[in-house]
Structure formats: C-alpha cells, structure tokens
Design a binder for these strands. Structure first.
Lengths: 337, 337
DNA sequence: GCGAAAAATGTAAACGGTTACATACGCTGC
DNA sequence: GCAGCGTATGTAACCGTTTACATTTTTCGC
C-alpha cells in the first residue's frame, strides 16, 4: 500500500505538502501541485480514508439502520439516501436489525466512531429505549418512527391524512362496509393509518367495527390470508383498504383465486404507491408517497445537522396524495383532492 | 468522546490492559478484566473503530457497488449480503453508481482504505476497464458480471439454462411463436438469457426471428411498451418470454389494457421469480433464482478470500428452477424439471 | 525461603494522515 | 543592502488504537 510518505519521498517534498495538494489547500504553488499530483498518479496513490478520519474526526459516512431490508419500499428509501449522500460526498453504511432491541444496540456500537450521523428507521414504539446509549448530541434522524418527546429530528409520512383521504374517497363512491387490513402490530405507520381509517368512517357518520379491522404485517402473504378469512364471512364488506400495497396485492390475489372480481365484487385500495402498483391487474389505487424523497430528505436533514447548518430540532411530515386507478372503481369521482 | 486513555486512568491501569480487555485477550487477570469492564461501561466507553482499523489495517467492512439500487431484486441481494456479513461481524458500505465508468472509479477511490473487499455488480461488459485502478490482489467478487479472463472471483446466475428451460417449456405447451422482451443492452444477464432463448428455439427446430426479439431495459414500463408494440402487429406471437419479472408484469398490464387474456390469448413468463410474482393476476410463471442467496454466497466468497481461507479463484454459478404458475397456461405439463 | 518460570501489566512505537507552528525563500521599498 | 513581509515548504505533535517488547508480580518446586 503506497502511503503519503512514499509520494513525499518520490516527489522530493514533505508529507505536509503532499497532504496539502490532496486537500486542495491554496498554500501550495502551482508548480509543486502539478509535480506532486503527477507523482501521486504514477504511484497510484490514494489517501487512506481511515487515517484521514482519525485526525479530522470525520468519517464522511452516515449509518442507515433499517428494521429489515425488504421489498420495493426499502429499496426506494435506500436509493434516495444514497443519492443525496453521494451528492454531498458521503458514504452510507447500511445495516438491518431484525427488530430486536438488543440487536440494534450491537449495531449502534459497531458503528461507533465510523459514522458521523445516523438515519434510524425504527417503526415500533420503543425507539427511546435504545437511543440513550448514543453519545449526547449525536446527530440522528428518525424515519417513520414514533417520536413522542421530540428529542430527535424526525421525518414521517402523513399516514393519518392519507388513510383518511382514501377511506373518504371509498365512502364517496358509495361504500359503507369497508374493511381494513392493518399493518404490523406496534408499528407506528400502521397505527396512524388505522387511526385515519377509523376517523374517516366516523366523520362520515359510519361506525368502525372491530371485526373489520384485520391483522396483517405488511407482507403480501398476510394480505392474502386476511382476505381469505374475510370472504368466508356471512357479511362481506364491499371494499378493502390495505395498510400497504403489498398487502393489497395479496388481497387481490386472494380475491382472484376465489373468483371475485376487482373492483366489481370488491374494491381494493393500498398505501405507498410502489412503482408496481400501476401495473397490477386491475391497476391499484393507492395513497402515493414519495418514497425516495423520504430517503433524500432524511439525508438532507441529517447532513445539515452534522454540518451544523441546522439550528432547532426539525420534525417534518411528508404529504401524501391519492392516486385513483381502477381497483376501487369509479375513477372519476369528484371528491378526490 | 471518551477514549481508551480515560478508561485507563480511571481504572488505574495502562491503556494496553484496557485494549486487551476489549479484545478478549487471555493475557489479563479475571479480576482486572471485570474492573476495567465496569469502569468502561460506567464511562460509556466504546472503542473507536476508526483508530482500530488504522492499526490493524482491517476495517471489518466490505464495499457493495451496485449499478443502481432499484426494485425488489436489489433489495433482496442487499438483504442477503447484509445478513451474512453481519453473521461474520462485517459491515457493508453500499454505493450505487449510475453505470458510468467515471463514477465507479470515484466510488472505488472513496472506498479506499475503508473496506477490506468489494462486491461488484457490474453487468455491462466493460468491468475490466475500471478494475485495474484497484490495488493488486485486492479482494473482489464479481456479481452477475461478464468475467472473460477470470481474473476475479465471480458468481453468476445460470441465465442461459434458465432461459432455455423456460422457452423449452413454452414450446412443450405447443407454442411456436414466442417473442422475447430483452433486458438492458450490454447487460450480461440480458445477453445470456437471450442466448438461452435462441438456443431453445433452435433445439426445437424453430427459427429465432429478429422481429420477435424486442428491446427492453428490465423496467416495468419497458415491458409495457414492448408489448404494446407487439400486439399492434399483424402476426402476433402466442407467448411472451420477458427477461425479468418486472417486464413480464408490464407486459401483462399492457395485455390487460388491450383486453387480451393471459394465458388464453397470450402466455407470459418472466425471470427471477421475485416474491411478488406469485401474487400477480394470473400468478406469473418464472425462472426462480435464489436472489438472496446471490448476496449471501457472494459475501461468503469474499470473506473467505479476505480471511485467506480461499485458495484459487472461484467461479460459481447459481442454478435456476422453473416455477410454473398459471400465466403460461397448462401448469401440469410433464416436461418441467 | 529462594530462584526460575509463568502470568500480568506497562512502555512506547507504530498505523497514515492533518495541521499549528517554525522556517526558508524570495520580493519590495527605502 | 537590509528590514519587513508574504508565500511556500518543512517539522513534529497529535488523533485513538494495537502490539512487540520490557518490566513487574505471582506461582511453584524444591
């Protein structure tokens, strides 16, 4: 491995000069700069980032801790993070923790001294439990997490309004019996979406029935299972609102297997609007979320804090937008936003 | 930031002893070990990984360079990588390069001294162009890449056989006019799958017609576009084989829009068998690939090489398996493997 | 109770950079 | 010709660890 010393010796200058050249300092003459660069490339020198990090106390990388890396949603989020991190010359250290509090602590320690900040997606409601193990004032952005005491910067989706709007849309189409397939238990997004669903029913003068709130966990299979259970019943709903698209797709699959047509026999709507939603058969109505923006904005917030550009705690909420396709019928209803 | 010196001072021992405690060296008495640990946790000490890396010349992390982070496929690969990296106490530094040779070089340099090895997914055919800029003998595993001279460890999917088997299956169902939607131009997987398609036709005594090899780029939309173009023609095929599932889904969507039924009016098959494939309507036949295994195996190979356990260059090929669902009709044909 | 071997601990030199401070080297102006 | 200054370069301390080697302490056989 060729080091700064090798370059210095070969170029006949001191290590300080070489360092200056590679840090674009103005304190070095044009002549020397060119010479050093030339020697550097000839020797295939590239500064060791680890050593640099040690003295500058900056790693130029950020940690990304996700509950699980799975499906289109996460891949879009990471994509957004990577994109804006790269633009500001940061790297991302990705780790998924399988949702165990002990595991996240291990991951956190392992990142110690290797990252300048952390994007933490911790959708269950016990985030505060683990975060105290961080050094005071360590830059953290909470993504899609419950953040009751507001101790960290945070970014969330406007789950409540999105769910409310979609259910209201279904009601506007004439549906009175609307079931919901819930997201994972204890998940913040899931509970907010459920809250929006209930509120929309109430606001329309309808009653939210516990037996129409089916358990799910955001996976296709849980949507399938919930739907199968639902259509066995004596009193079927006329519409299903799934807490995410994957479950909605699972639901449509189950309906198809049972010979029920969407949207004629049953309307279906999802949440997230993953890229694939519009290619479903029929195309899936969904609550659109700028998933990649979730990543880019979280990164912006984090880097702003790392670089001291941010003053106060920030709590941002990403708006949603209804995307009505044919899976819920009546695409030309007037009450969409 | 509390350092090893603080702990040493507070515990009344030397830094060497503290270091030994935190490295599980046997050279320290049980009594001292407990005492140091106790002081360490009280002070919330955690060794600085950067400093450690500098002396040991090991970062315990691997770089993952992907052409683009997009869709379920990549998310599964990363998931596999992360899983087995974590199991062996490594971290992953992820970076996507938007397929420009200049960019990959930047990314490579930025990882210099920060990673112990590299998993490189570089499906276009110019991998060799950029790799020379790596230090000699640097551990690299090429994933799904053309690797003509075998200069690196590599892992690929058995694209050729998979495509061959699927097309042969379609022929076995009676199809004689089978179109293919190709993957991205210059992509290694894409060209291998095309090769398998052509060979299967030839082996069955059919002719491969250039006008039935449609351009695509692995995206849903390109599948949609290709299919729309296809069904405008006077002579329609009876089956479409898409080079990946995303395009197959796009194709089914286009067929649905035009009122054509799958598989009755047109059989459709894909490649990759992403988790969502079985939830399509109708469920999508596909060539199953253990996508996560691609990640885990690549990681194993890389770590084995990093830790010197591997001797010779390895070139592995991951087998595929047909998964016949209803999108191509006749699910009980006898000629599946 | 002694000496040697074994075990535990300490000292200090790396690792590869950055950077405050010191120094050398022109210049300019008088 | 020299004080004074700005610019370019060098010297060496430092970042937080690890680890070879030196030193101290303990153990144990006799």
């Amino acid at each position: 491995m060729v080091t700064i010393k090798d370059v210095a010796r070969e170029a006949g200058v001191s290590v300080a000069t070489v360092s200056r050249v590679y840090n674009d300092s103005e304190l070095v003459s044009e002549h020397t700069r060119r010479h050093v660069k030339e020697v550097g490339t000839r020797l295939r020198y590239s500064p060791n980032r680890t050593a640099r990090s040690l003295t500058t106390a900056k790693s130029n990388s950020i940690g990304v801790l996700l509950p699980d890396i799975y499906g289109e949603f996460f891949s879009e989020v990471i994509r957004g993070i990577d994109e804006s991190a790269q633009a500001r010359d940061y790297h991302i250290l990705v780790s998924s923790s399988h949702a165990a509090t002990a595991e996240i602590d291990v991951a956190l320690r392992a990142m110690r001294g290797r990252v300048d900040g952390l994007i933490l997606m911790w959708p269950t409601n016990d985030a505060e439990l683990v975060l105290p193990s961080l050094p005071d004032g360590f830059p953290v952005v909470l993504l899609n997490s419950a953040n009751d005491d507001g101790a960290f910067d945070s970014l969330t989706i406007d789950n409540y309004s999105g769910a409310h709007a979609m259910v209201t849309h279904l009601i506007g189409l004439g549906h009175r019996k609307i079931a919901m397939i819930q997201g994972a238990a204890g998940n913040h997004d899931a509970s907010e979406r459920l809250r929006g669903y209930r509120a929309a029913l109430r606001d329309a003068g309808l009653r939210a029935l516990p037996e129409w709130e089916l358990p799910g966990d955001f996976s296709e299979s849980s949507g399938w299972v919930a739907t199968m259970a639902l259509i066995e019943r004596w009193a079927r709903p006329t519409a299903i609102f799934a807490a995410n698209d994957a479950m909605a797709i699972g639901a449509m699959s189950a309906l198809g297997e049972k010979g029920l047509r969407v949207p004629d026999d049953m309307a279906v709507a999802g949440f997230d609007d993953i890229p694939m939603a519009r290619y479903m058969n029929p195309p899936l109505s969904s609550v659109h979320v700028e998933i990649a923006a979730l990543g880019t904005q979280a990164t912006q917030m984090l880097l702003d804090r790392i670089e001291q550009k941010a003053a106060d705690r920030q709590h941002r909420t990403l708006p949603t937008r209804l995307v009505i396709r044919s899976s819920c019928g009546g695409s030309f209803s007037l009450d969409e936003p």
